[in-house]
């Protein structure tokens, strides 16, 4: 062993490096705890359970456990996550756009500042549609109608202050109208809103792009535009920006780690999630569920989050839903 050839030395060196790398892999959390701050069945829960499935099937972690803490747009879940998992490098929480609004509107004591951003995972673009027999045919028609009288244009979508409402207010803002004058009719659950849109009871419908796909293809609804930068595969119509209106908004979902973890632990969790996102299992699940991959790594996600919170809080403030 006294005399190593150059090649042997290199081989040894790389073996040590590999060992170190795999050693750090072994040091990775073998058991992950993923919290879905919602009841079983919703988008966050499904994201958490898909993560669980892919992370274990691809052998990225040995096991993963999903817990549900339901309620109030996730603000109960995040409070419990922050209190219960401080400094725990094996704890993750799924979250998304909805939680940003819920925290602002309910003035939740625990905000997204308290947790550690790891990655944005998926997103869904918002679509505007009208009933097939509506006189409105293009985004420009809709803008003209809003300019004529913003209160005469009724919007049907999900909960007040939610992503659909924010989309409506931002669109009206682009048309030069006061977002708070928008006659937004909130519905609970997709079914009720869809019935109101299909029956032409509301002027415009707003919701996640895939919700309307079938009805646009079946010629019951007319596609006005999508809040995406460019055409999204599979969806039956153009984006708003392709039609000259600059409105980009996605209902994103991401994953956060506990507060108080070290930078090294954060980096390891980031790598783990990145390996998951790049796996075939993840791609398969996304295409099965119709989710768009809008992955952003930790630092990009953190910057995005900052802007997103500022933007949402601006719109909600204008709507009178967040009081200074």
């Amino acid at each position: 062993m006294a005399t190593l050839t150059r090649r042997e030395a290199l081989a040894l060196g790389s073996a040590i490096l590999t060992a170190a790398a795999s050693g750090s892999l072994q040091a990775l959390p073998s058991e992950l705890k993923i919290m879905a701050p919602a009841a079983p069945g919703g988008g966050w829960d499904q994201t958490a359970r898909v993560m669980q499935g892919v992370l274990t099937a691809e052998r990225i972690v040995r096991s993963a456990q999903v817990t549900n803490v339901a309620g109030a747009g996730g603000i109960i879940g995040i409070a419990q996550f922050v209190n219960g998992s401080k400094g725990d490098p094996t704890a993750l929480m799924v979250s998304g756009f909805v939680m940003v609004g819920a925290i602002l509107m309910n003035r939740a004591p625990v905000t997204l500042d308290a947790v550690t951003p790891i990655a944005r995972l998926t997103g869904e673009w918002q679509a505007l549609v009208v009933a097939a027999n509506s006189p409105i045919k293009t985004p420009q028609d809709l803008i003209a109608a809003i300019k004529a009288d913003v209160t005469k244009v009724s919007w049907g979508g999900g909960s007040a202050g939610g992503v659909d409402h924010i989309t409506a207010a931002m669109f009206a803002g682009l048309a030069g109208a006061d977002g708070s004058k928008v006659n937004y009719i909130a519905h609970s659950g997709g079914g009720e809103a869809m019935a109101a849109i299909l029956s032409n009871r509301v002027t415009v419908g707003v919701g996640g792009g895939s919700e309307f796909e079938q009805h646009v293809k079946g010629r019951r609804l007319r596609w006005i535009g999508l809040t995406a930068p460019q055409g999204t595969a599979g969806l039956p119509g153009p984006t708003l920006s392709e039609q000259g209106i600059k409105l980009e908004l996605q209902n994103w979902r991401g994953v956060f780690a506990a507060p108080g973890i070290t930078e090294a632990q954060r980096a390891e969790l980031g790598q783990l999630v990145e390996r998951m996102v790049k796996s075939k299992g993840w791609a398969d699940q996304l295409s099965a569920k119709g989710w768009q991959d809008t992955y952003l790594g930790a630092s990009a996600f953190e910057a995005f989050l900052k802007e997103e919170i500022a933007r949402v809080s601006g719109v909600l403030g204008q709507l009178g839903l967040v009081r200074a």
Binding site: G189, G190, G191, E213, Q214, R220, A288
Partner: peptide, 25 residues
């Protein structure tokens, strides 16, 4: 119509979509 009107129906819709079946006409 692909309209879920109860919690169970909403979950069943997710079940359909998992197999790329889109309820509707």
């Amino acid at each position: 119509l692909g309209i879920p009107t109860s919690a169970t129906a909403a979950i069943m819709l997710a079940g359909f979509q998992q197999y790329n079946l889109q309820p509707g006409p």
